[in-house]
């Protein structure tokens, strides 16, 4: 069942883009849209949008980079370890949970390291990879998406995004403990 689902989704992911391209452009032709001209017209915005997000991305990534390089994460892990022990979350996975909203490459590195040390099928390995799959890099998404439309006052986006991350991590711990817990 699981394998079938996986195979199906994999197949869909592989054909999705070619299918979308032919469907969208084909439908356009059918509706007498001057596809080439309209495509180019839309594509023009690609450059300006990408350039627009640069200042936002520089601000965000530099702050995250400084935080990562300083060793503050290790300090935070020591401080928070007693709390996470209460909910049955191994302290080894705490850096993963803290890094996930900040940096995609950083959390990928932590996940790889945890699997190398503890094994991919250990509880820690399964939990770390579930955590990785349970959330997105909130601050990156925030910088890119809001940057593209020059939003500076993000209002409740940060608290709401962090609540989402918190529940993602808690959900990952909960389901892993039920299914693979010791």
């Amino acid at each position: 069942m699981g394998d079938l689902f996986r195979a199906l989704i994999n197949a869909v992911s592989i054909v999705a883009i070619p299918l979308l391209l032919i469907l969208f452009l084909g439908y356009g032709i059918l509706k007498k849209v001057r596809v080439y001209e309209v495509f180019v017209e839309g594509a023009k915005e690609g450059f300006t949008t990408a350039i627009r997000i640069i200042p936002y991305l520089v601000a965000m990534l530099c702050a995250i980079g400084i935080f990562r390089a300083s060793g503050a994460l290790e300090l935070l892990t020591t401080v928070l370890a007693p709390v996470t022990n209460l909910i049955g979350m191994p302290p080894e996975t705490l850096p993963m949970a803290l890094m996930r909203p900040l940096s995609g490459s950083g959390s990928l590195g932590i996940m790889t390291e945890l699997m190398k040390v503890h094994g991919p099928d250990s509880f820690i390995g399964v939990l770390a990879s579930t955590m990785y799959g349970s959330s997105e890099t909130t601050f990156y998404v925030l910088a890119v998406y809001f940057g593209s439309v020059q939003i500076k006052n993000t209002r409740h986006a940060v608290p709401a995004g962090l609540i989402a991350d918190l529940f993602g991590m808690l959900g990952a711990v909960f389901i892993c403990r039920i299914l693979f817990g010791v």
Binding site: F24, G46, V58
Partner: peptide, 27 residues
């Protein structure tokens, strides 16, 4: 940050182009 943003240009242009066609066609 700049590398990421510049890397987005091509792929952004492609999808924004396709989306524009889809929009005009009413899809």
């Amino acid at each position: 940050a700049v590398t990421i943003a510049l890397g987005l240009i091509g792929i952004m242009a492609l999808w924004l182009g396709v989306m524009k066609v889809a929009e005009e066609a009413g899809l």
